[in-house]
Amino acid sequence: MRLSPDEMIFWQNGYFKLNGTIVFTWALMLVLAAGSKLVTRKLSMDLKRAYWQNLLEIIVTGIEKQIEDVGLRDPKKYIGFLGTLFLFIALASLCTVIPGFEPPTGSLSTTAALALCVLVAVPFFGIEQQGLRGYLKSYLEPTVIMLPFNIISELSRTLALAVRLFGNMMSGTMIIAILLTITPFIFPVAMSALGLLTGMVQAYIFSILAAVYIAAATRGRRPKPVSIQDIKS
């Protein structure tokens, strides 16, 4: 029994190998890129447009709205990173209904890679927004004593991101696999539907958390707590 698609190795040459995680990721990348290219090949600027264009517009503008709601002022700047996170994880979860497909997000290597990307992206956007000094200063807030705790918090949340996603995706696949051996027909289907929901929720949580981290890093100083007088005024 495989815990992760990493163990599904198609080709190996020393350190380099081609496992299931990479292959399924490529498949998802192909689907996403080719589908996008296909739909956006002839976009309509008019009021009348194709169904697929409408679907993509709903998804893209929905993501943009969510990013804006989190507190990032220029959502177009972050949609490339955060939107891709969401779409990749969501499509990986969605494709679990295809027999034989194993989600690359069920591999701790993939989730760790995504969490590392977030770990790098947070200071990247933070420094870009408020400069190196301003960003590093945020680690000393509210006092210098908090510096180690802020660093630990940074690392632990990255770890949490990776493990949370991996745990949910892997458990979903594992539960279905175990249930198939016990009750082969109805119950696995229900669990599979539940797994789809869990996958969507995880995609949302992962991308929203990433957005929140980036927002916290780009905002600089934390906002002052709102007083009753402010609300009244």
Partner: peptide, 12 residues
């Protein structure tokens, strides 16, 4: 996705 999805869609 930036190249084929977000940019064209947002531009449109």
């Amino acid at each position: 996705l930036k190249r084929f999805l977000y940019k064209p869609i947002l531009d449109a």
